[in-house]
Each structure stands twice: as C-alpha cells, then as structure tokens.
Design a binder for these strands. Structure first.
Lengths: 338, 338
DNA sequence: GCTTGGCACTCAGGACATTCGAGTGCCAGT
DNA sequence: ACTGGCACTCGAATGTCCTGAGTGCCAAGC
C-alpha cells in the first residue's frame, strides 16, 4: 500500500515538475493532487524515493526533482500513452493527406510532430535497404552521356549520369533498358544488387552495360541517402529553459550532424514499438539532459525508417509518445497507399 | 582632417566592439589603436559621432557602441573586402570540387560558409526560372501510370506521376516523348511552358498528351522548388551572446520559414555584387539585431540564386563579406563547368 | 582653432549583510 | 501507519555601500 502511494507521489512529482519547471515540495504536492494524506507523510515517501534514487534535491531546503531513473520508472510503469483526440487525429490525417510526394510527406511530418509536441522533431527518410526497385530508366542525354534513373517502391527517385565510351543506338539502349529492368524490378535492393552484378561477368564485359550497372549498384548502395533526415521545430529549443550552454548548444550541434541524429533515433527494430531514451541513457554525455522519443515507421509491418522528437528530459512524455506514435501510424498508412 | 580622424575613431570602435563585445571607451581606444591623440580628443570626436547617430551609449558612464547607422558607414566606406588567403581559397576549391551532384554542392557550400564565418549560412537552391530544359523523359510505370522526369540545365531533376485514361503503346509513348522533347529541350523554363501549352489546343486535345503536358507545366511552374534553401551552422547561434529571447528565438523561427529566409537573402539582382543588410534595415523588426550578408550566384553572369550568412549586427563584416563572395564565386564556377 | 590635462559627476556592477519563506527531517502523539 | 509540531537550512530577494570606468566640460597650451 505504501508502495502504491509512493509511486503515486513519484507520478505527481514528475507531472508537477514537467508543468512548472520548478522543484516540487511536499505541501504543494498534496494541495495540487488529491492524495488524501498530509505533507508529512508525503515527506517520508519522498525521503524513501530519494534513497532509491528516483528523485533528488537540487539543494537542501528545496523541493524534489525527478532523476533520470525517476523518469524511467514514470515512463515504464506510471503512464500509458494517452490516445490523441479525434480533432487531433483529423488534423494529422488532413495535413499528411495533402502531401504530393515523398519529400513532402517527410517535411509535413516533421512540421506536424514539432507542432504537436512543441519539441524538435526528427524524421529519417525511408532507407533504401528494404525498399524494392520499381523501375529503372536509361536515357541518352548526349551521344556519350546517359542518365540513369532509379525509382524505388518508397517513391524515392535517384538519378546518376554515366559517361560511356561508345555511341549507343536507340535499339541497343532499349535492350539495355529492358535487361536491367528485367533483372532488377521487383527485387529488394540487396538482391537487385547481386542480380545486377551477375550480369557483368569479368570476361566479356560489355563496357557500356558494365558502366550502367556499376552506376546503378552504386546508387543502390549509396549510404548517403540512408543518412538523410529532416529536422524541424528548432525554435522550440528556445523554451529549453535556463542552461543554454550546457544543453542547447550541444543539441544544436547534434541537429546538424545527421549521423548523430540517426544514432539518437536508434535502430529501426520493428520489435519495440516506441523507444524512449532518457538523458544519460543515450550514447552522448553532452546530451545528458536530453531525451528522445522515437519509433519506426514504414508501410506494412516492416520499419523502413524512424521518426521521433528530441527534448529536455523534463518533458511531457505521455503527450510526446502519443504524438510520435500517431504520426508514425499515419505516415505508414500513407506510404502503404502510395 | 578632424573628419578623417573621426572616421578612424568610428572604425576603431567598430573593430573593438566586434572583437570584445563590450562598449568601448576613449582610453582603451587610444591604447589599443595607434591614433596619436589623447583620450580627451577622442572623447570630443565620439561626442560628435554620437550627435550624428553613428554610435550610442548603453547608459551614461559606459563606453560607446556602434549603431546600425554606424555599421552601415563602416561597411560602406571604412572597409574593403579583404581577399581570402590562398590556403583558404584552396580549401574552398577542394571541398567544393568533391561534390557529386547539385544537392551536394549546396550542402557543402552551406557547411563551408558557416565554418568560414562562424555564422549561420543560408544557400538558396538554384531557381527554376532561369534554367533551361535539358531533357524530358516519359516512362510507363504501369498500364495507366506514367512517370514524367524533367531534367534542367542546373542539374535539378523533377519527377511526377501521371495517371492516364488509355493504355499507351510503346510507339505512342516514344512519339509523345520525342514530341515534348522537341518542343521543350533547350528552352528557358518560361518559354518551354508557353511552347508546351501551344501543343494542346482546346479542341482536339489528346487526353494523354494533355495530361503529360499539364504535369510538365505544373512541375516547371512549381514555386515550391523556388523556395528551397539549405541552412547550416545553427550551432553558431549559441555564440550569439546575451539576449537569447529577443534575438536568437526569432532567428531560429525565421530559419525554419524558408519564405522568410529568402526574403532576407533578398532578390537575386545580378547588379549589386554583395548585399549587406544591417539590423533594422531588414523587413522584420523582430530581427533588428541581425545582419545579413548575401550575394547572388550562378553560372555565367546571371544570378540563379542567392547565398549568404546571417549573424548578429555585431559581426565581422569584412571577413563575412570576403567569405560570402569567395564561396559564391567558386560555386558559380562549378555550376559553369557542369 | 584644435588639442590636451584636469576635474567633477554619473552610474552599472560587485561585495556584503539582512530578511524571508519554502522546504526539510525528526519526533512524539494518536 | 499517519499526522502535527518544531527547529533548522539555505537559496533567492532586497537593500546598501563602494569602486572604477567612463563621460562632459572648461581652461590652458601649441
């Protein structure tokens, strides 16, 4: 029983602290929340919670503040992701439905997420690795210059220029085009790569075919595109609170390093539905007062990429989690339709 | 003669203030710069400069700080853009030469600019409006679904999906492809649009042709792409100084509003080589302590787009101007070669 | 007619002391 | 097991004083 109340106290502390941004004391706690006990009792509970490392005092004679461990417990056991209101759902749907292409979907998602959560939003572009090849086009731009266009099932389009040694007749071009299409269309990237490679055995390699294939393989295995992310809502950093140098600056720097961002978002395991990384739990100690709420998204049940939000450890976890989950769902649905 | 010395005093004040970030007094001024007069004389000059509105005192008994008007005079008359060192030039050249496509050029430029100036850098993607059509490709993705790919002289590629009513034979597709290419290739966007429109007179409009042409025209006149900008070096905002709420927050917001950014960068007049907009001179009073140094760039002598940096009014104008100019030149050269 | 040294004046910012109050820990009583 | 009471702590707010950088002005000098 006391155990249960202790958790209620912890929840109340987290909620109050998130709302007010100030250490919360025993008296204010019993007043604002309807726990039917006296401040003294709460004090005892708080002392116990502090012993266990869930809360801490900035200084003697100040209220308590949740520790990372406290937030962790709060997130794991004291909260359920509250569903979005129907109005919010409708807003999400209409905004995302208006998107015209993949870029637009990503950009709108970022905006949406940052507005819903009032935090910095990060959306990874769908990775190549799990998508399939929808079409390959080979275009003669000039006698010795081809443009290769690679269209993927995610809607992404990559194009590359190829310089070739011999002039190519229209028929040969058509043959080449149909060859690569027969070989690659419908395949997952990884398999398309091996299939394409098999087309050019070392011996009789036709140089033009080889060049085109090489370019395609290159485009498919280009991890640059895997690293693309969209960031939005950086202005919300302004509400980060006091510690500008210690918290905002490193975060601003991280936001420009897409590789770091991707690491923060985490791996796209489709297993865990929603990842919450609190403060020091992350791999960067300069971001120790920053939390990340992220999840995978993608058509079907496979996670193609991740999206999420980044904010101060002192943040509204239930709300953020709900928003992240909702946006991920709608984006996945849209990608499904496309 | 006094006039000349006054300007020297103003220059010294600007330089000192930019370096130290603190109001500068008469004594420190004569010590740190070699003006061969006494502090009292400088005081007289300063009083005069203050009367004329070039400098101001934050409070009585404090040193002087340049006003926007003072910076303006400094930029217009007291400084010449100092050329970059050869080492810097070489660094710029090698970094930009490594770019593989247009996106990469833009991204590298942004990084480069922000690192050179330690400010926030902004680069506008080359606009459609002045570029010419290099190639149009029409691809049948599925029986009733075409992909139209538009390739421009700037290296930009736009693709759109078209749903059509009738199934299209390969021959018809080839005809259509060659028709639009004959019509549009080599033309400036605006003329390509009118030429394409002329292809589909109201009467006998073939619905498929009409659909493709409409999509092309749409892609060409899509101003969304005109609004694309890349932003980099936001972490430099951390060095902005004290006034976080009043200066950094509005700027962070502006950085997310690409339309606003473009307005800040200014119009791409190829006439003025380098635009410096100081503080309140800009259109947004919330950015009154922010200056913009920008210039146009593009292949040949036409300005395709703009790039520049955004920073506090108290910034190193000569250095920033030099960096902006140098980067613009190299980017233009690279676009020229492509 | 500039320039200069001198001098009185101003005022932000730092050092220090004081007060105030929210909050705690503990203990004895119910 | 909870509660009321009480002494204690200490950060934040307030007030006062002082210092020093910086100014404006004036009369003297080149």
């Amino acid at each position: 029983m006391q155990e249960e109340r202790r958790l209620a106290v912890l929840r109340a502390i987290v909620e109050d602290y998130v709302a007010t941004e100030e250490p919360v004391g025993s008296k204010a706690l019993v007043e604002r929340h309807g726990l039917g006990v006296s401040p003294a009792t709460v004090r005892n509970d708080m002392a116990a919670l502090e012993d266990e490392g869930y809360i801490t005092q900035p200084h003697t004679s100040a209220g308590r503040v949740p520790t990372d461990k406290g937030y962790r417990l709060f997130v794991d056991r004291l909260t359920t992701v509250k569903p979005m209101s129907t109005a919010e759902k409708r807003a999400i749907a209409t905004i995302l439905d208006g998107a015209v292409d993949l870029d637009d979907v990503v950009n709108r998602s970022v905006r949406l997420l940052s507005q819903l959560t009032r935090q910095v939003a990060v959306v990874q572009y769908p990775t190549l690795s799990r998508s399939t090849v929808r079409h390959v086009e080979v275009i003669a731009l000039a006698p010795y210059r081809l443009l290769v266009v690679l269209i993927l099932s995610t809607g992404r389009v990559e194009q590359r220029l190829v310089e070739i040694a011999e002039e190519l007749a229209e028929d040969d071009l058509a043959d080449l085009r149909s060859l690569v299409n027969r070989t690659a269309v419908g395949e997952v990237i990884a398999e398309a790569v091996t299939a394409l490679r098999a087309l050019v055995p070392a011996e009789d390699a036709d140089p033009t075919t080889a060049a085109v294939v090489e370019t395609l393989v290159d485009a498919m295995s280009d991890h640059r595109s895997d690293e693309r992310v969209a960031v939005g809502g950086a202005a919300n950093l302004a509400r980060y609170g006091d510690n500008f140098d210690s918290a905002v600056r490193p975060l601003l720097e991280a936001l420009e390093e897409h590789v770091i961002l991707l690491k923060l978002l985490g791996e796209a395991h489709s297993g865990e539905p929603l990842t919450v990384r609190i403060g020091h739990e992350g791999p960067y100690q300069s971001l120790s007062s920053t939390s990340v709420v992220a999840t995978g998204y993608g058509p079907g049940d496979e996670a193609f990429a991740r999206l999420g939000i980044v904010g101060p450890t002192r943040m509204d976890y239930p709300g953020s989690m709900a928003a992240v989950r909702a946006v991920a769902r709608y984006v996945s649905r849209i990608l499904d339709e496309a």
